[in-house]
Design a protein around this nucleic acid. Structure first.
Length: 447
RNA sequence: CGGGGAGUGGCGCAGUCUGGUAGCGCAUCUGCUUUGGGAGCAGAGGGUCGCAGGUUCGAAUCCUGUCUCCCCGACCA
C-alpha cells in the first residue's frame, strides 16, 4: 500500500476530548473518528486492526468447535417479550418503531435470538451439543460512554452460545470456551486472567470475566503470579477432551484471581506472599453458564434418546472485539505511539523512502515493496514527498512492528535499515538477506 | 441519572469579565531553498464564533432557551 494513496489522518497534537492513552493514540494514529458519544467510524488503518483481532477470535472459536453464523443487529420486541427481558432490560436498550409502528430494538446481546433460532431448527438430542457464535455490532445506550472504544455505545462483540443436554456436557462447553478465550487473548500479545464474576442480569450461577492486565485499567485486580508463567497456546489441552478440560479447570482453579468486587481476603491469605500480585485490569471478555433460563422461558425442547423432552442448558460467551483494540494499545505503547503486537498490526512493515524525488531511491523502494509483498508481508510504503523526520515519527506513532528505511546512503550498497518498533534496535541489512529472511520465517524476529 | 466543565477554520488554543464586526501555533495549498528523526523563507486558501430567540446603533462577548461533547460517581463486552 502506498501511503500517498491511503487515508491516514495522523495528528501531532492530542485532541482535548481524549483522556486515556489508548483513546488519544487511536485518534492521533488515524484509527478511528468519533461521530457521536460512544460511536466511532473505523478509518482504514483501524479497520485493518479490527479485522485482524476478529480473525484471531474467529480462528480460536473455530478450533474450539464453535460454529459461526451471523444474526442481524435489529431485533423485534416480540422476541424479547418471550424471555421477559423486554421489560426487564432498562433504558440501556435502544428501542424504536419501524414504519408500521412495530416495536424494534438494536440488539444489545443475542440470547433471545439464538435461542429462537436453535429452538426452531433443532428437534433431537443428536443435534446437541452445539456452540454457535457470531461477530456482530451491538448497541447499548450506556449512561456514560467514555474512554474511546473501551466503553462505546456501539461496539463489535463476539458472542457465542452453547446448547447442551445435561450439566456435565454444559460444563464442558463452558470450560472449552474459557480455554479458547485464554488462548485467544494470549495470541494477541495480551495477558488475560480469568476471574470469578457475579452473573448479573444475564442470570445463572457460573461466570468468569477475563481481565487484561494494564496499568491504566479500570478495575483493581488481585492475582497469583503463577498466571504470568502460563502459556495456554502451548499447553496440550484438547478442546474435545473431558479429562483435559478437567485438568485445565483444576489448573486455574487453584490459582487465586479476583477483582476488588469479588476479592476474598481469607482466600488471598492462602496465597504465598511472593506470589501475591495486584494491579489494574480491563475486562475484555465475560462468560456465563445459566442453564435453562432462556431455553425454558422460550419453550425450547429437544427429544432425548429415551423419547422424553429435555430443555437444553445454555451458556453465553462474550468478547469485546472493538474494546480489545483499546486494551491492546493500553498494554503496548510508549511515548512515541502505539507498539502493535505482530499478530494484530495493521501492516507488518512500514517502508520509508527518504527521498521519493530521487529516481534510484524510488526504484529501490518500489522494488522492495513488491518483494516484501510477494513474500507475504503487508507493507505500508511511505512514498510521500515529506522529510525523514516526519516519516519516522508517523511510523512510530502508528506502531507497525518493523520499519524498513531506504535512503541514498544505502541504495548504492543495496542495504536498508531495519528497525524494530518494540525495542528501537536498528540494523543495516542487505536487501537480499531481508527478503530471503522473510520468505522462510513466520515472524520478522528471525532477522 | 446526580455533580462539574466545555463548544471560536482539520487539531490545539487566545479573545468573552470591560460589546466596536475574529486572531495565534500546527496542519493544508503555491513557489524557492532544503532532505537519515515532525525544516527555512515568501505568499495563499479556509471560520454565518454549536443552534434559536432577545437586548443594542452595533453581539464570539450581555440575557433567555436549547442541542452537543468531555470529566467524576452508580452500571456494563
Amino acid at each position: 500500500m502506498l501511503l500517498s494513496r491511503y487515508l491516514l489522518p495522523v495528528m501531532k497534537e492530542t485532541p482535548a476530548d481524549a483522556q486515556i492513552v489508548s483513546h488519544q493514540l487511536m485518534l492521533r494514529a488515524g484509527l478511528v473518528r468519533q461521530t457521536a458519544a460512544g460511536i466511532y467510524a473505523w478509518l482504514p488503518l483501524g479497520l485493518r486492526v479490527l479485522d485482524r483481532i476478529s480473525a484471531i477470535v474467529r480462528r480460536e472459536q473455530d478450533r474450539a468447535g464453535a460454529i459461526e453464523l451471523l444474526m442481524p443487529t435489529i431485533q423485534s420486541a416480540d422476541l424479547w417479550r418471550q424471555s421477559g427481558r423486554y421489560d426487564a432490560y432498562g433504558p440501556e436498550m435502544l428501542r424504536f418503531q419501524d414504519r408500521g409502528q412495530r416495536e424494534m430494538l438494536y440488539g444489545p446481546t443475542n440470547e433471545e435470538m439464538i435461542t429462537a433460532i436453535f429452538r426452531d431448527c433443532v428437534r433431537s438430542y443428536r443435534d446437541l451439543p452445539r456452540t454457535l457464535y457470531h461477530i456482530q455490532w451491538k448497541f447499548r445506550d450506556e449512561v456514560r460512554p467514555r474512554f474511546g472504544v473501551m466503553r462505546g455505545r456501539e461496539f463489535l462483540m463476539k458472542d457465542a452460545y452453547s446448547f447442551d443436554m445435561d450439566e456435565a456436557s454444559g460444563q464442558l462447553s463452558y470450560y472449552t470456551q474459557m480455554l479458547a478465550y485464554l488462548r485467544t487473548f494470549e495470541a494477541m500479545g495480551l495477558r488475560a486472567v480469568p476471574m470469578r464474576a457475579a452473573t448479573g442480569p444475564i442470570g445463572g450461577n457460573l461466570s468468569h470475566e477475563f481481565i487484561v492486565l494494564a496499568d491504566t485499567g479500570e478495575s483493581e485486580v488481585y492475582y497469583d503470579s503463577d498466571y504470568e508463567h502460563l502459556n495456554w497456546n502451548q499447553s496440550a489441552f484438547d478442546y474435545g477432551n473431558a479429562q483435559d478440560l478437567d485438568a485445565f479447570k483444576r489448573m486455574f482453579s487453584h490459582m487465586y484471581a479476583a477483582t476488588d468486587e469479588t476479592h476474598d481476603l481469607r482466600a488471598w491469605e492462602q496465597v504465598p506472599d511472593e506470589r501475591k500480585k495486584n494491579g489494574r485490569g480491563i475486562e475484555v471478555g465475560h462468560i456465563f453458564f445459566f442453564g435453562t433460563k432462556y431455553s425454558a422461558a422460550m419453550g425450547m425442547h429437544v427429544q432425548a434418546k429415551d423419547g422424553s423432552l429435555v430443555t437444553p442448558l445454555m451458556g453465553s460467551y462474550g468478547v469485546g472485539v472493538s474494546r480489545l483494540m483499546g486494551a491492546i494499545i493500553e498494554a503496548n505503547h510508549d511515548a512515541n505511539g502505539i507498539i502493535w503486537p505482530e499478530a494484530v498490526a495493521p501492516f507488518d512493515i512500514g517502508l520509508i523512502n527518504l527521498r521519493p524525488d530521487d529516481a534510484a531511491c524510488a526504484a529501490a523502494a518500489h522494488d522492495l515493496q513488491a518483494k516484501l509483498e510477494a513474500a507475504g508481508r503487508s507493507v505500508l510504503h511511505d512514498d510521500r514527498d515529506a522529510r525523514g523526520g516526519e516519516k519516522f515519527a508517523t511510523m512510530d506513532l502508528i506502531g507497525l512492528p518493523w520499519t524498513v528505511t531506504i535512503g541514498p546512503k544505502g541504495v548504492a550498497a543495496r542495504t536498508v535499515e531495519v528497525k524494530r518498533r518494540a525495542t528501537g534496535e536498528k540494523q543495516e541489512v542487505s536487501v537480499e538477506s531481508l527478503v530471503a529472511g522473510l520468505a522462510k520465517s513466520d515472524t520478522m524476529g528471525a532477522l
